[in-house]
């Protein structure tokens, strides 16, 4: 099975355009602590990544009934995988070596493998060191030879990615000297940003029971 064939099959997964006002949550906390990602912390709606709005081949028209029903204002989950994807997923899962994920956190992509350290460009509110986050937005899952691309996100039931909050880091103090011409006075502006550091502890590809006998790391 060549990679191009896989890609072409996966492109059939293009779903119906989704409303841009809804933005999926990016993390769910799986510890006993309460859910930190309250709706008020979710930023203002921003346009979702570019929809793959290429004309669909007539053989696979978009099936609106396959999309999950929307419940009043709740963020929509990722679109479910098509049968072709499920059929080809074991090929990806059976490949030796690490898998990589293109994660999406707050609109920024991170290409990670298990064991990597992510320094987020912000301080995540409400988390403390040792918390485990389940990251469920990825635009691509890949192995050595195959890549599963999402449109825009991969079905969250096909993979499992967990990250541990390592702590909060800061950058060295930034000093910006403000000086106007022909004026002796200078003003020094100081700033020191804080960043949350995550460690990707687990990446698994979940193959549904009907598709393969076992699931692989």
């Amino acid at each position: 099975m060549s990679r191009t064939l896989l890609r072409s099959l996966l492109e059939l997964r293009a779903t119906a355009p989704r409303p841009s006002t809804l933005r999926p949550t990016f993390t769910t906390v799986t510890t006993t602590r309460s859910l930190h990602q309250t709706p008020s912390q979710i930023g203002p709606p921003s346009p979702t990544p570019s929809q793959s709005s290429a004309p669909l081949p007539p053989s696979s028209p978009p099936n609106p009934s396959s999309l999950p029903p929307r419940q009043g204002g709740a963020p929509r989950t990722t679109s479910p995988a098509t049968p072709q994807t499920l059929q080809l997923l074991p090929l990806l899962a059976l490949q030796p070596g690490n898998k990589y994920l293109q994660l999406y956190i707050q609109g920024q992509a991170y290409l990670v493998t298990p064991g990597d350290q992510i320094r987020l460009p912000f301080k995540m509110p409400g988390v403390s060191p040792g918390d485990v986050l389940r990251l469920n937005r990825a635009t691509a899952i890949g192995s050595r030879d195959f890549t599963l691309k999402g449109s825009p996100y991969v079905d969250e039931s096909l993979f499992e990615c967990r990250a541990v909050v390592e702590g909060t880091e800061a950058e060295p103090m930034r000093l910006k000297i403000k000086k106007k011409q022909r004026c002796r006075r200078t003003k020094t502006v100081r700033s020191k940003h804080k960043y949350t550091v995550l460690r990707v502890s687990e990446v698994r590809i979940l193959v549904p029971e009907g598709q393969a006998q076992g699931q692989q790391q």
């Binding site: 690490n98 990589y100 493998t113 320094r119 030879d145 960043y195």
Partner: peptide, 14 residues
């Protein structure tokens, strides 16, 4: 000062 968000010691997957 860190400029790259992901730090990895793994080999390249592909």
């Amino acid at each position: 000062k860190v400029t790259k968000p992901v730090r990895s010691i793994n080999e390249s997957v592909r």
